[in-house]
Each structure stands twice: as C-alpha cells, then as structure tokens.
Design a protein around this nucleic acid. Structure first.
Length: 551
RNA sequence: GCCCCCGUAGCUCAGUUGGAUAGAGCGGCGGACUUCUAAUCCGUAGGUCGCAGGUUCGAAUCCUGCCGGGGGUACCA
C-alpha cells in the first residue's frame, strides 16, 4: 500500500489500542475518525478518539487526548510536528514538512495508480445502466443514467473491482411492435395509432428503414429493422458521450435457443418450488421473499411477461460469473425492486448481491417551467440536442455533481447561456495551466525535478501553507475513491475535483514555480505541479471528462 | 391508503453510519491584468439547515409526528 494517510490512521489505531490496554473491549472503535478539520488552527488532522475512549477508560476526554498525543508523538517522531488538545477532547495533529515532502515523493511514485486497488474484497460486478427502450432516441434525462453508470464503473474499477457494463435492449414485446406500426403508418403518410409513437423521429426512421412502406413486409419484421436503426443511434450517442458498453444485451436472445435462458430460469425456480399455476397463468411466488404480491411469469395464453425476461437476464448474469449485479434504475422503477430482489433469491442468489440503485429524476427547466417528457408523444429533449447545446464535458459534470438520489433540475436557459460558468471549466483550466507551465520548463527540467537523486525533499526553508494544503488534498484521494466506490457516489469525485482545482489555484497564486530560488525549491514545486496534474487528469478521467492541455 | 426520494444562502448543490464557529460554484456589491494562462484572484453581503418535539456532553446528520415537492403502487414495457 502506498497511502501515507492510511498509515497515519494505523498509527493512531495502534496508539489508541495501547492506551486502552489488553483487558478491555476487543476491536478498535469503528466510530474513531481521522478527520480533516474545516478550520485552520485545528491541525492538519483531528481525531475524536479520546471522546470515544472516555467511557471505556473512565477518564476525562481531554486527559485521554493528551496521553494519546504523547504516544503518537513517540511513534512518529519525524512525521508528527506537534499536537494539541482542543474543545471537548479533540486531538489535533500538525504534520511536519518532512511528512508532506515524503508524501509528495510517494504521490509521484504511484502516478495515476494512486488510490487504486483499495477494495477489501475485489468482486466481479455486472453494471447495467440506461437500458432505455429502443423505441426512440436517448433523451436528456438518460444522460444522467449514462454519466452516472459510466463514472461509477470507472470508479469501481479504480477501486479494484472488475466491471462489465451492459445495456439491456428491450427488443421484444408489444412496445416494439407498436413502434413498427407507427413507422408503417408514417411511411404510408398516415398518423400513427393512438397508442403508438407520435414523435417526429418516427418519420425519419420510416425514411431510413427499408420496406417501411412495403406492405408485403410484415410489421413485426419492420419493427425489428426500426429497433436496429434505433440501437445504432443509441450507440452513436453513447459513444459521443464517452460511454462505452461491453455489451448491448438483447432481451430477445433470452428467448432463443432450446432450452432458452428463460426456459432454464423458469426450470430453476420451478425446481426450487417457487412456482405455481393460477388462472391458467404461471406465477412466481415472490411473496416468499418479501414482495407485496406474487408475479406472473407466463400469461394466460403462453406469452411470457417482461418479468420473465428479467428473471432470465439475472440468470444469465449469474451464469456468466458475476457475483454482484448492480442495476441503475429510474425512480419510476422503484416499485420493481422488491420483485427483482425476490426473483434473484428464488434463483438462489444472496439478496445483498443484487443491488438496484434508484436514480431520481431529471427535470428540464425552460422558461421557469418543468418540461414533461414522453417518448410516446415525442415531446422531449434528446441527449444529442443537449450535447449540441452545452457540450459533453459540461453535461457530464452537471449530471454528476449531485447525488443520484436527489432530483435534479437542469435549467436549460442557464445551461445554454452560462455553460462557461460550469465548474468543470475551472477544473479543466487548472489542468491546462499546469500543462502550460510544465511545457514551459521543459521535459528535461521536469524529469530532473522528479528524479530520485534530486534533493528537494530536504531543502532549506519551510513549506508554504498552500503547498502543505495542496499536498494533503492530493493525499486524500484514496479515501475519496473508497468513499465514492463504496457509497456508489461518483458525485463525491466531482466535488473532490473542484476542491483539488481550488487548492491548486491557491498554490499557484501564492507560490511562484518557474524560476523559484533556489533551484531545489523550483524542483519541488515542479514536482508538486506534476503530481497535481496527474491527479487532476485521473479524477477527470473517472468522471469521463476530458483533461485539456490548453484552453 | 401504503411504499420510495427530496426540502441546507437569491439560483444550482456539497456536507447526513452524531463532532468544534454549516461550505462551494454561480449570481450581487467593491477591488486587482508590466505577472508561470484574468475561463483567474482578493474582499464583502447573504442561513430559524421545511416545522415541532425527542434521544445526549454534542443534532443539518439519529427517532417520532406534521407541512411541502417529486415518483411508485399492471397478466404495460
């Protein structure tokens, strides 16, 4: 492991354990924290350990904090500059310049793998997201799912997991047929059926798809062609958006073959005796696993439900060796969670390994009004249109900056007129500035600055507070990655990226880099710039946002 | 009715497995371009953390109730 902050935390744990003695409670207190105080003057790090130990030891918290500090000082004579006991019993730690310099050295050694591989038990994860029906173009709101799923995948991978991304294509069923009917109608110059798709894009497909107006071509066949055309469009949009899937998984493929995946899944749950017949339909007894009511798998008449496909798709994922299944669902699907969990268990799965994540809605606000989006009516803003307006980077950042469990209002007027005010440009600007500076000093000078033999790790003079703060920010990446991965929270990285850019800009404003005297100081600052650039590029990559060298 | 999410600065949002005086961006106001990129920086104003109780050394964070907004509650997909 290459994580100076984690090492500090271990030292603190050791000190706390020693203080507590062997006779008392077994494990370290999980509530013990190594925090970064918000206010200056409260140390570089702070811990509440003493307050948690107080009831155990039966001593005043401040007294414990003082003893804890002394132990830590003995353990870390070089790293720890000094400590203070404050408030109700906080222990504030001030780290030495040496600790910061060593930290920078280790950042450079790790490069863009810093903060990677922290997962306690690496998993094979199948991450399914978007999966919007191929009966229309990708709408703007799906851009949130796409950005979230893609970024989450990148973060999970950096954290040490293996991730496969899939887009589930609903290419069978009545919706698809309805699309075929609508295309046929448009091709013949008629209005689509009332329950069909009214959007203008249907006419475009009708022009592009072969045989649309040819009544000898079956509507079902026409529907397939239309879906294929839609999927091509979806792939193009996703590609433009920087979202790569490992596979577009066809729902229909679940029904093909003999026995089909659907057949096998049903056989499995039948064998486990979770199935019964009622009213000529085949039901899955999901109530066994906490669902409100049982669910139909095969309708009266033999037609399998969409739920049967879901069951089979889960089966397929398990057969392919993914122990964890994450699926990003829209808020309008939260009613499915119970039955999906139940189905997963009926197949013999551990319910904790099926992880439906509910994404709250995106409202597009225009003229101070929320626009309603309906694919049927064709009344929507597409993701492509949004990308035309405000660009990939700004869109992705906007979609990622807030928690997925929070409704997002996307103000189109604002997005259009003030896209340059998007924080993403501030972050990219910091990256571009560094690139420009490093180019100015030249590759050889940079190489010299980071060379092992270079002695900037012990120059005369104290570090500037901006240097110290920037280094600590850089060193906090591993825990940010862990937090973002474990909480499925890419927005944490979006916030971190902005904070890192701010720390860098403060350093830039206060500390001259090129031409700093003595040369060892210039080397140190060049090295710090390089480490910052590497990490900015890394977090931008995790967000799926570009890291330009010039702006 | 029942279930899920949300309510934090004018706007958009962080912070919520309890910690010190609640933060950022944008917008407002006042300043700074002989400078390594001004897409920047500095200063300043702006808050009953929806409301009311409770738990405790300590609550934006946990519990209960209420108010407000959004979504769901199909042999549709």
């Amino acid at each position: 492991m290459n994580d100076p902050v984690a090492e500090l935390r271990s030292a603190l744990d050791a000190a706390a354990t020693a203080l507590r003695g062997s006779g008392s409670e077994t494990d370290a207190d999980p509530g013990m924290r190594l925090e970064r105080p918000k206010r200056s003057g409260q140390g570089d790090f702070a811990t509440n350990a003493a307050m948690l130990l107080a009831p155990v030891l039966g001593m005043p918290p401040r007294e414990i904090a003082s003893r804890l500090g002394e132990r830590l000082a003995a353990q870390l004579p070089v790293e720890l500059s000094h400590f203070e006991v404050a408030g109700p019993g906080f222990l504030n730690l001030v780290m030495s310049d040496e600790w910061h310099r060593v930290g920078l050295r280790r950042l450079l050694e790790a490069g863009d793998s810093f903060g990677s591989g922290g997962a306690r038990s690496p998993e094979r994860i199948l991450l399914e997201f978007v999966s919007a029906n191929p009966t229309g173009p990708i709408v703007a709101a799906s851009g949130r799912h796409a950005a979230y799923g893609d970024s989450l995948g990148r973060i999970l991978e950096h954290h040490g997991h293996t991730v496969a991304r899939e887009y589930y294509v609903n290419d069978s069923g009545s919706q698809v047929l309805r699309l075929g009917e609508s295309v046929r109608a448009r091709a013949l110059g008629q209005d689509p059926p009332e329950d069909g798709y009214q959007g203008g894009y249907v006419a475009d497909i009708a022009k592009r798809v072969e045989g649309a107006a040819d009544e000898s071509v079956d509507v079902r066949e026409l529907a397939d062609r239309a879906v294929a055309a839609m999927v091509d469009g979806i792939k193009a949009t996703m590609s433009r958006y920087g979202v790569q899937y490992d596979r577009y998984f066809s729902e229909r493929s679940l029904h093909e073959g003999s026995p089909s995946t659907v057949d096998r899944a049903i056989a499995d749950v039948r064998e486990a005796e979770h199935i019964y017949e009622h009213d000529d339909a085949l039901w899955l007894r999901t109530t066994t696993f906490g669902d409100d009511k049982d669910r139909v798998l095969v309708r009266r008449g033999g037609e399998p439900t969409y739920f049967a496909s879901d069951l089979a798709y889960m089966e397929s994922k398990r057969e392919r060796g993914f122990e964890r299944q994450i699926l990003v669902l829209g808020a309008d699907h939260h009613g499915y969670v119970a039955r999906l969990k139940a189905a997963f268990q009926a197949l013999g799965g551990d319910p904790d390994m099926l992880e439906p994540l509910i994404m709250q809605l995106v409202h597009l606000v225009e003229n101070a009004e929320r626009t309603k989006m309906s694919k049927r009516r064709g009344d929507f803003v597409t993701l492509d249109e949004l990308l035309d307006e405000i660009g990939v980077d700004a869109t992705r950042y906007f979609m990622l900056q807030s928690s997925h469990e929070r409704t997002l209002d996307l103000n189109l007027d604002l997005a259009r007129s003030q896209s340059s005010e998007n924080p993403v440009y501030y972050i990219q600007y910091a990256h571009a500035r560094i690139a420009s500076m490093l180019a100015r000093v030249g590759e050889e000078r940079v190489a010299l600055a980071v060379a092992d033999g270079c002695d900037w790790s012990s120059p005369a003079g104290e570090l500037h507070s901006a240097e110290r703060e920037l280094i600590r920010k850089l060193l906090s990446l591993p825990e940010e990655i862990a937090e973002a991965a474990e909480r499925r929270a890419p927005h944490r990285i979006a916030v971190f990226a902005l904070e890192l850019a701010q720390e860098f800009t403060a350093f830039y404003t206060n500390c001259k880099v090129v031409g700093a005297e003595p040369a060892t100081l210039e080397s140190f600052r060049v090295a710090l710039c390089l480490a910052t650039r590497t990490q900015l590029a890394l977090v931008l990559r995790l967000l799926g946002v570009s890291a330009p060298d010039a702006m």
